[in-house]
Design a protein around this nucleic acid. Structure first.
Length: 806
DNA sequence: AGCACGCCGACT
DNA sequence: GTCGGCGTGCTC
């Protein structure tokens, strides 16, 4: 007997295993491994969505529990192939998360189940006024309408026992494909010719339609096209339908998120280094080698062209290709370049798409209609088959690590898929992560270098401005004299400027000068940021918003001052200093709306503004030939973070943003303003010398026992009651210290650096270790042991190789 | 998660 | 006595 093993959509520790179900006869042909199904689950009539992980041949009698039947099948075809199912199991294990959560992240959100409970009225002779009122003139109501009404709920429970009402559970599919009305001819062209003779001479529109059918055997056309392109009106269509000349038909269409025209582009001639790289990778594609390449190329060295020609090689071999880019640089610039090269073969996946668009792109990939996928982090789960190459651009980018469950590092998933598909993985960056670069040194990865910019353009000239001097000299803390005059000079030459300030809002905090009181968020342990556009104080963590205080909340003093500069304030100040500046501000606040990102960049590209002022979102991927000056207003924001990766981040950010300058003929210039001009990360970013930075930073990591010399794991406990959270984390720490080798280094337990977010307290332990074969088992034990606390609102999270220790 | 079951205090 | 609060355990 064939039984189905189902992973149910109930993300808890206890239910994180397959459940066995009978396959009813009428569903036998529709069910396959990887299908979405609805199954009964639990005592009542509850139904949940699930994924078939396995079909096994077992006798029902072998089971020591009652087996229920699968209720229905949600899709015509399996939504997960074997590769992705296997991947979900590996992912769950390696990220300490539930399998169903892993499966959910693989599927477009339109495929996540939508549950609905409905109360049906069975008995019409109910006398209770509340109940009569409730069912006014319907027989069934949505349960959520009465969910909170205890009194009503109790009455209904009673009635349910008397069989007077019933509770029904529905698993609905959110996945709606877009349909468009098509017109299809119902007659042959020969018949159309006959009809043409019969129609009245003055019915010109009908004649037009008949001619169309005459000329196109088996005509099938969008109704809207028929109306717009051929000027055939709705009434004509109605008449023709009545006469049975044509049929109306709903056809599933794919939403196309990139309607804008993409101009075709062709492979560029490669320089020596580039062709060497392409050849190496192509060799690996041909030979089905699972090599991992690290493509270390300075900014502007033409990495993208290497990617594109590599993808071409995969396609020529009859394979597909996956290209990942950081979310923030998933700009139309990159997408258009890939689309322009490979046209209809390309599917794009990123958060800017609507749910429907994402679903459609996903289906195009699943059905094999798209062979090239470009996308951000989660696109690593694209249902491509027969992958020939996986490319990760800007492999060092922090957005490749997901910061909630499953907390995966895209790079690791990419390597897993490369291994499964027997294909190479290409990691590209101007500033590789230390982990990757170290592996290249150990020959685990193959290092490919692009040390020169294309056409031998020079790297920009970088100047470091000591803001301590500037502050002492002319009291300036935002715009130094050298930067200001450079801006003015560039503007006078009609060139463009990019300014980066890694802090949004107006001022970063508000402090009372009398008592030192800083206004904090009531829900989070973080100070509120002043926003001038809304005249309010905002919390960047939970979104809390309150009016700007006029007097100090603490001491009632009026001496309140704003400290720190955000993008809003910088924009205002810059306009004061350079009135002729035309500034586009780009930060989370101005790019929240769909497509805003693209619009702002287009305006800048069209020279509608001469200064682009933004947060780090402007550091990556932008390629504007007219940008000759880049300014970093405060290089210290990322340096001052209490985290072992802060130097690496700072170096990467400064190098990336500097790379925006002088990408074409005109030479670029960069000014980095800092209060730490001698810091090595800043000095080496000035020299644009990655290799030197790598050597220096590795030395420090070695001294301090940090990655890549050590593995790390972060265990966090959070909950509403600080006491309980703290005692839990100490308990865990004690347990682990007893179990692990004494070479493991424990940091903490301690409150997390933002100890409270949205009224949840956070405590953490970080463990640095070299070799701990028992660790995985211990952590699984902890998760199991503390699952009971999850019901009391106390959660344990495990983050393997966390991005930051904060 | 969501539901049933069981145990305990407080009410018509 | 029973109603409803919450802690506990189970879901093929």
């Amino acid at each position: 007997m064939k039984l189905a093993e189902v992973i149910v959509d109930v993300p808890t520790m206890q239910t994180d295993k397959p459940y066995t179900y009978l396959i009813p006869n009428d569903l036998k042909n529709q069910i396959a491994v990887g299908s979405r199904v609805a199954v009964p689950f639990g005592n009542g009539k509850r139904k949940v969505q699930g994924i078939i992980a396995n079909i096994v041949n077992k006798s029902e009698k072998d089971m020591n529990f009652e087996i229920k039947e699968i209720d229905k099948v949600m899709d015509l075809n399996a939504v997960l192939n074997n590769e992705l199912l296997e991947l979900s199991a590996w992912l769950a294990k390696s990220t300490y998360s539930f399998r169903i959560n892993c499966i959910s992240t693989m599927l477009p959100s339109a495929m996540h189940a939508k549950y609905k409970r409905v109360v049906n009225l069975l008995d019409n002779n109910i006398t209770d006024k509340d109940i009569i009122n409730l069912f006014k003139n319907t027989k069934s109501i949505d349960f959520s309408e009465i969910d909170s009404n205890k009194k009503l709920l109790n009455k209904l429970m009673k009635l349910q026992k008397e069989n007077k009402v019933s509770l029904e559970y529905l698993v609905n599919d959110k996945a709606n494909s877009k349909k468009e009305l098509f017109i299809k001819s119902n007659i042959t062209s020969a018949e159309a010719e006959q009809y043409l003779k019969k129609v009245r001479k003055n019915s010109t529109n009908q004649q037009k339609l008949l001619h169309l059918i005459l000329e196109n055997d088996a005509l099938e056309i969008k109704q809207s096209d028929l109306i717009n392109r051929y000027q055939i009106s709705n009434s004509t269509i109605a008449t023709a339908t009545n006469k049975k000349w044509i049929l109306k038909k709903q056809v599933e269409v794919y939403r196309n998120p990139y309607k804008s025209k993409v101009s075709r582009n062709y492979p560029l001639k490669l320089n020596h280094d580039q062709s060497l790289a392409v050849n190496k990778i192509a060799e690996s594609i041909n030979d089905h080698n699972k090599d991992v390449f690290l493509l270390e190329g300075v900014t502007g060295s033409g990495k993208t062209e290497v990617y594109l020609q590599t993808i071409q090689k995969a396609l020529v071999n009859g394979k597909t290709a996956l290209m990942l880019v950081p979310e923030i640089s998933l700009t139309p610039q990159i997408v258009n370049r890939v689309k322009g090269r490979f046209g209809e073969l390309v599917a794009v996946l990123h958060s800017g798409l609507s749910k429907g668009e994402r679903y459609d792109e996903w289906r195009r990939i699943n059905e094999g209609k798209a062979q090239v996928v470009v996308g951000a982090r989660s696109a690593i789960f694209a249902p491509l088959k027969n992958i020939g190459v996986i490319i990760m651009d800007e492999e060092h980018d922090p957005s490749y690590k997901q910061d909630d469950n499953p907390r995966y590092q895209t790079r690791e998933v990419a390597k897993w898929r490369g291994n499964y598909n027997n294909c190479p993985v290409v990691l590209g960056s101007a500033t590789p992560s230390l982990e990757s670069r170290a592996r290249a040194s150990k020959k685990v990865y193959q290092l490919l270098k692009l040390p020169r910019r294309i056409n031998n353009h020079k790297l920009p000239n970088v100047n470091v401005v000591d803001m301590r001097e500037e502050l002492a000299k002319n009291g300036q803390e935002d715009f130094s004299e050298p930067l200001l005059s450079a801006i003015k000079q560039r503007l006078s030459k009609n060139e463009q400027v990019v300014l980066m300030l890694n802090r949004r809002g107006f001022s970063s905090f508000v402090m009372c000068r009398d008592c030192g009181f800083v206004l904090k968020c009531p829900n989070c342990d973080i100070s509120l940021t002043l926003h001038m556009d809304t005249y309010s104080m905002k919390c960047h963590y939970c979104g809390h918003e309150e009016p700007i205080p006029k007097v100090c909340v603490n001491c009632k003093s009026r001496k309140i001052r704003y400290y720190g500069t955000g993008t809003q304030k910088a924009q205002k100040e810059l306009l004061k200093l350079i009135p002729e500046a035309k500034i586009i501000r780009m930060d989370v606040d101005t790019t929240r709306k769909k497509g805003a990102h693209e619009k702002l960049l287009n305006r800048f590209g069209n020279n509608e503004a001469n200064i682009l002022l933004g947060t780090q979102m402007i550091a990556k991927g932008l390629d504007f030939p007219n940008v000759t000056l880049v300014g970093v207003l405060n290089a210290d924001t990322s340096l001052d973070l209490p985290d072992f990766r802060s130097s690496e981040r700072t170096f990467q950010l400064l190098t990336q943003v500097s790379g925006r300058a002088g990408r074409a003929e005109k030479e670029g210039q960069v000014y980095i303003q800092t209060f730490n001009p001698d810091n090595y990360a800043i000095q080496l970013a000035k020299q644009q010398n990655y290799e030197k930075f790598y050597a220096r930073e590795m030395h420090i990591r070695h001294e301090m026992n940090y990655p890549p010399y050590y593995f790390t794991i972060k265990i966090t406990a959070n909950g509403g009651q600080e006491q309980r959270v703290a005692s839990k984390i100490f308990e865990i720490s004690k347990y682990l210290k007893a179990k692990l080798n004494n070479t493991a280094i424990f940091l903490g337990p301690s409150p997390s650096s933002i100890a409270k977010i949205k009224n949840q307290y956070y405590y953490q332990i970080i463990i640095k270790y070299k070799n701990e074969p028992k660790l995985n088992e211990c952590l699984q034990f902890i998760l199991n042991y503390y699952q009971k606390d999850a019901q009391k609102g106390l959660y344990i999270n495990i983050d393997s190789e966390p991005l930051s220790f904060m």
